Simulated scan of single mutants.
Amino acid sequence: MVVESDGLLDESCLVAAPLPQEAVHVRLDKPRMDDLADLVFLANNKTVAANLAAMPHPYTIENARTLVKQAARVRDKSAMFAIRLKSTGRLIGVAKYAPVDAEGPVHIGYWLGEPFWGQGLATEAVHALVDHAFTYHDINELQGSCRVTNPASRRVLVKSGFQFRDQAMIRSIGAGGSVPIERYTLERTVWKSLKGWGQGR
Rank of each mutant, 00 (worst) to 15 (best):
F164T: 07
V15N: 07
E124C: 11
F116N: 04
H57L: 04
S153Q: 10
A168H: 12
M80I: 02
Q163K: 12
K96S: 15
H107S: 10
G113F: 10
I170G: 10
M169K: 13
L36W: 07
L14D: 15
K159F: 05
S178I: 00
G113N: 10
A17R: 07
E182F: 01
D6Q: 08
G118W: 09
D10M: 12
L112N: 09
V100Y: 08
L142P: 01
E103F: 11
K192G: 01
K96D: 15
A122L: 09
K30G: 08
A72M: 06
Y59M: 03
R171A: 13
A43Q: 06
D38I: 01
F164I: 05
G174H: 06
P151I: 08
P18H: 05
V24W: 02
T66D: 09
P115D: 12
I108D: 09
N51Y: 01
A125T: 11
D166L: 07
V24L: 11
R84I: 05
V68N: 04
A17H: 03
A152Q: 14
G120S: 09
A50H: 00
P58F: 11
P180F: 09
W117Q: 07
V179E: 15
L19S: 07
V24Y: 02
R32E: 15
D76M: 00
P56W: 02
L36Q: 07
G89A: 06
E141N: 03
V100Q: 10
D101G: 00
G144H: 06
K192Q: 14
G109E: 11
A71N: 04
W111K: 12
V40F: 08
D166H: 13
I173W: 06
L186E: 01
N44S: 13
A95N: 10
P99G: 11
V3R: 12
Q199V: 13
K96Y: 00
F41R: 13
P99Q: 14
G118Q: 06
